[in-house]
Write a protein that binds this DNA or RNA. Structure first.
Lengths: 192, 192
DNA sequence: AAGAAAATAGACAGAACTGTCTATTTCGTG
DNA sequence: CACGAAATAGACAGTTCTGTCTATTTTCTT
């Protein structure tokens, strides 16, 4: 790995800082100057690594996409081979996320909202992540022997995204349990 | 009606224009000057009617809240007295909304994203709307004879909000059908 | 028709925004 | 040590942002 994104420590530090601030306050509201002051990095360093703020945001989203997918995959793998347990692992993971101190909603959903034009690169990148998670869900429900895997996975996606929204708005992790119960009902209905 | 919000035509026109632009492009990205140019109104007129941009946004949200609730209530009422039909009416209404030309996602969900701090007045106002819709759903599922009305209504809320997100991101009205099918399954399971 | 209320245009302040540029210093490696 | 690359501080341009102020004109009511 290397040609596309030379692994520079400054670059990594900028990405990490951008990620934290964008997640905490929003993509549009966080300015370049704020970000640079927080990171303790000069402006030209940023613009040597990223062509624009938009490219920085895209890099943040790509990084988060890879990380979230890895974490979710790991959580499922750690649950063993039983589809039922794997299922529960998804919602346990969700609950743990909701209860973490720095939970502030979903970075991808926020990107979709802040860049509402469907053709915007940021909008598209965020949606690609949601689609990747959906693909993961399709695999899961297929293993569980559900009758119409894509339909069920779509419904689970609705529940999960809805739960993230509610958890953020209420500051409670209860939506994880609501989603889990509803998902279990749907799964039972699709396998019985 | 009158003391709090004197019914002025200029004020109404400003509200309507603000609503359209905020919905199309976002609350933060639309500036006061843009809004004024679009409305053809002087700056001081705006600031005579609203103390700040934030208060304008709050007024927009309140107005939309009342309107959306009225539309949803009307759609349910027009479906007659059968709880099953009332249920379907909710998702039909959702589908119709998704298929309308100017569908750009949910103004309230976007407000929640653009103002992520839970204590922010705009965040709170948007969430109040979602809670009001939830209350409406509780009444619906209670009439339908579901066993745990609040739990079921919560799950339906997740499905609905998730569907709005997906419909916006994909530009398809299919999520309405996905949500409808899942909701029917959950309802059947809660009444059987 | 006269006086009060509302709306107008537009300048203005003060801050924040992205991105560019220059000149200097630090750093890593041969 | 020496050389080239990377990072630095900070000024700068040009735009945009919210909100204030003034002086003038329009509109409504009596």
């Amino acid at each position: 790995m290397s040609t596309a994104q030379p692994a520079s420590p400054k670059r990594a530090h900028l990405l990490a800082t951008a990620r934290r601030l964008f997640y905490r306050d929003g993509y549009r509201v966080v300015g370049i100057d704020t970000l640079l002051a927080e990171a303790g990095v000069a402006k030209m360093t940023l613009y040597n690594h990223f062509a624009s703020k938009e490219e920085l945001i895209l890099a943040v989203i790509e990084e988060q996409d890879a990380e979230v997918r890895a974490a979710l995959t790991a959580a499922v793998a750690a649950a063993g081979r039983s589809p039922t347990r794997q299922f529960q692992a998804v919602f346990d993971w969700l609950k743990g996320w909701f209860e973490s101190d720095d939970f502030k909603g979903c970075a991808f959903l926020r990107a979709l909202s802040e860049y509402p034009e469907p053709d915007h690169p940021i909008h598209r990148a965020a949606w690609r992540h949601k689609q990747a998670v959906n693909t993961l869900l399709v695999g899961l429900v297929t293993d569980a022997g559900a009758r119409h895997p894509t339909e069920l996975a779509d419904a689970l996606g609705l529940l999960i995204n809805g739960a993230i929204l509610s958890a953020h708005a209420t500051g409670s992790s209860a939506p994880a349990a609501t989603a889990r119960t509803a998902a279990a009902t749907l799964l039972k209905h699709a396998t019985a």
